[in-house]
Design a binder for these strands. Structure first.
Lengths: 153, 153
DNA sequence: TCCTTATTTATAATCATTCTTAATAAAGAA
DNA sequence: TTCTTTATTAAGAATGATTATAAATAAGGA
């Protein structure tokens, strides 16, 4: 049976790149940490466990390559660090994020939600949308529950 | 008559900050370059024309202060540089952006457009939204016109 | 096998941003 | 006014993320 790794290998080959052991190790880490929004440094430290000889620059290069091929999404939450998410297979767009300004947690919204808005934008601004990035900042349900239980807040 | 600068001065005083000459010069540059999405370096170079003795660190500090007070919005389009926009007076949210992947132009959408989406998110994810950031990436009307007129594309 | 090209490692370099320290300016008290 | 305190600034050093460089290695094709 064809695995996700196999399909990524094909995508790389189609663009005449190889799935080297370092690249495969990096992809495996991303597969094991979906929804975790890892930074390059995070990925590097995790990859070192399964491929200790890898260099940080290689991780950066691999993440950049995967971003170009739209296998991963490079996101930025405003702290000077880029974060990397595997894009859902077949998804044409970035997914959305909920960033909690209390605890810093980042949750994901996989549903599109923007179809209607995009139709308006394409028509009214005559802009042909290829992708989008949408992040909400606010209070997550966990913090909300905590503060409603704790009268000191 | 009360000017925008006067109102910003009041906002600063209300938070016990002063509108120093350096800060005022920085604000004036932002007022003269609305919709331009200037980087800190851009602002610095422009401010130097009207206040040559200013330092880059002061510009950074001022932009950070104005961001905290929600007088300017700090935005990031994924090119390792933060950009700064004066927020429209009275606006509670970031405005949206259209980034052209052909020519790099950035246009603004001042309308909210997200009210319906936010209602869904607040309810379904039990997330109390305080702000949002929405950017569309695609082909702007200028590039679209260009390529339809130019058969070589 | 040789030859060519892609990739990696290790380290140096770069670039945006923040920090540090001493100097300066402003504001309030006496 | 003068003294005192605090806020702010300039200049440059430091930091931290990311990218470039150069030499070494690996892979693939002829």
């Amino acid at each position: 049976m064809e695995t996700r790794i196999d399909r990524i290998k094909k995508q790389l080959h189609a663009a005449s790149y190889k799935l080297t052991p370092q690249r495969e190790a990096t992809v495996r880490i991303l597969l094991n940490h979906e929804e975790d929004h890892l930074s390059a440094e995070d990925v590097y430290l995790l990859v070192k466990d399964i491929a200790p000889e890898i260099g940080l620059a290689t991780v950066y290069r691999t993440l950049e390559l995967l971003t170009e091929l739209k296998i991963v999404d490079k996101i930025n939450f405003g702290d000077g660090v880029s974060r990397y998410d595997l894009r859902q297979e077949g998804a044409a767009h970035f997914h959305h994020h909920l960033v909690c300004i209390e605890c810093g947690a980042v949750d994901e919204i996989q549903e599109d939600l923007l179809e209607d808005v995009e139709a308006v934008v394409e028509k009214r601004w005559n802009f042909q949308i290829k992708d989008h990035r949408l992040t909400f900042h606010g209070i997550c349900w966990r913090c909300h529950d905590r503060s409603s239980q704790d009268p000191s807040q």
